[in-house]
């Protein structure tokens, strides 16, 4: 399952997507939990009883603001979350 957490508003499209099939077999030792400086990820048991990473509820409506520290206006090379996720389950839409 691809889980897209975030939103699209007048300012743009802001989603963090997690490919739960790749996440389920995590061989990065759940590195996303500590890689994000804001601690935005958590491990949940989803509706199909899979233990996978998700973006915490309180961040889902404010990603454009919460991710700013890792995304300076001048550009960025790599993100802590998607770099730490070696299975490649985490992607940003913007």
């Amino acid at each position: 399952m691809i889980a897209n957490y975030g939103y699209k508003d007048g300012a743009g499209e802001f989603y963090i997507s997690i490919d739960t099939d790749k996440c389920l077999a995590c061989d990065a030792d759940r590195a996303c939990l500590t890689a994000c400086p804001k601690g935005m990820f958590e491990i949940i048991t989803d509706d199909y009883d899979d233990e996978v990473a998700a973006v915490k509820q309180q961040f889902r409506r404010s990603l454009a603001y919460d991710c700013t520290a890792c995304k300076p206006a001048g550009g960025y090379a790599s993100l802590p979350c998607s770099s730490a996720c070696t299975p490649g389950a985490i992607k940003h839409s913007w």
Binding site: D9, G10, A11, A64, T68, A73, G74
Partner: peptide, 12 residues
């Protein structure tokens, strides 16, 4: 030099 804005959304 650089700018970041939130146009077209009244929230900001």
């Amino acid at each position: 030099v650089d700018f970041a804005g939130n146009e077209k959304c009244a929230a900001g």
